[in-house]
Amino acid sequence: MTTSREWEFAGTRGAITARIWAAGDPRYAAVLVHGYGEHLGRYGHVADVLVRHGAVVCGPDHMGHGRSAGDRVLIEDYEDVVADLHTVVEAARGDHPGLPVVMIGHSMGGLLAARYAQAHGGVLAALVLSGPVLGRWHVVEELLPLDDMPDEPIDTSTLSRDPAVGKAYTEDPLIWHGPFRKPTIEALDTVLRRINEHGSLGALPTFYVHGEADELVRPEDTRTGIEAVRGEDFTERLYPGARHEVFNETNRDEVLADVTAFIDRVLR
Rank of each mutant, 00 (worst) to 15 (best):
P183S: 15
T184K: 01
T184N: 00
T184P: 02
T184E: 04
I185F: 08
I185S: 11
E186H: 00
E186F: 00
E186V: 05
E186S: 07
A187V: 03
A187C: 06
L188P: 12
D189G: 11
D189M: 07
D189P: 04
D189T: 04
T190E: 14
T190Q: 12
T190D: 14
T190Y: 09
T190A: 10
V191H: 10
V191Q: 14
L192M: 12
L192S: 06
R193I: 03
R193C: 08
R194H: 14
R194F: 09
R194K: 14
R194D: 15
R194Y: 09
R194W: 13
I195P: 01
I195T: 01
I195K: 00
N196Y: 08
N196E: 13
E197T: 15
E197Q: 15
H198A: 15
H198F: 08
G199S: 03
G199M: 02
G199A: 05
G199F: 00
S200V: 01
S200Y: 08
S200L: 06
L201P: 01
L201R: 01
L201A: 07
L201T: 04
L201V: 03
G202T: 01
A203D: 15
A203C: 05
A203H: 11
A203Q: 14
L204I: 04
P205T: 05
P205E: 11
P205V: 11
T206L: 14
T206H: 12
F207P: 07
F207M: 00
F207C: 04
F207K: 04
F207H: 09
Y208V: 14
V209L: 15
V209D: 13
V209A: 10
H210N: 08
H210Q: 12
H210F: 02
H210E: 00
G211R: 10
E212N: 03
A213T: 07
A213H: 14
